[in-house]
């Protein structure tokens, strides 16, 4: 049974500004921010379960203001051998723009928005209501690398 959970897209444009930033600096630095994105499914979340077989899938892609295309970044939780307990597979994706600050010299700062997309998957054992697996990936407008992949786990 495929259950779509509540809309969970998180397009956060952070509006925290440190004092002293000029408009021109912000305008130049916005090129590292996310320009547009799309998700499958539209909610950027998929939820499969409870089940001992099956998989859950969420994918996201985005374009940065600098023209870099991120993704598609995909997270698929895959049960290779049927689980002994019913589990709930939860996958999600999000796009973010976050404010990053560089200290140029004493008292002078440059700020810019850095966009990233991330996907994550967790598995919940429905009998014990505990998380038994957690993994995901990240990609940003500066070409950030993906984090490690957890080893295949028991379920």
């Amino acid at each position: 049974m495929m259950l779509k959970v509540a809309v969970r897209f998180c397009g956060v444009l952070v509006l925290l500004l440190l004092p002293g930033f000029s408009t021109s600096v912000r305008a130049q630095s916005d090129e590292d921010a996310i320009y547009e994105f799309s998700c499958v499914p539209d909610s950027c979340a998929d939820n499969y379960g409870p089940s001992t077989t099956g998989d859950a899938f969420t994918s996201i892609k985005a374009t940065c203001n600098n023209g870099t295309v991120l993704g598609p970044k995909t997270v698929t939780l895959d049960i290779t051998v049927p689980c002994t307990h019913p589990v709930l597979l939860e996958t999600s994706a999000e796009a973010n723009d976050e404010l990053v600050v560089i200290e140029l010299d004493c008292g002078h700062y440059l700020s810019y928005y850095l966009g990233d997309i991330s996907v994550s998957g967790i598995v919940i054992d429905t009998v014990t209501n505990t998380e038994i697996y957690n993994g995901g990936a990240l990609s940003d407008c500066l070409g950030g690398v993906s984090p490690p992949v957890p080893v295949m786990g028991p379920c």
Partner: peptide, 24 residues
């Protein structure tokens, strides 16, 4: 690529779950 499987898991007879490799 995108796949790490300990031997202890495959011989345990338990279920196995993990992230599927990126289709790309």
């Amino acid at each position: 690529p995108d796949t790490f499987v300990p031997e202890s898991l495959v011989v345990s007879g338990r279920g196995m779950i993990g992230l599927a490799p990126d289709p790309e």
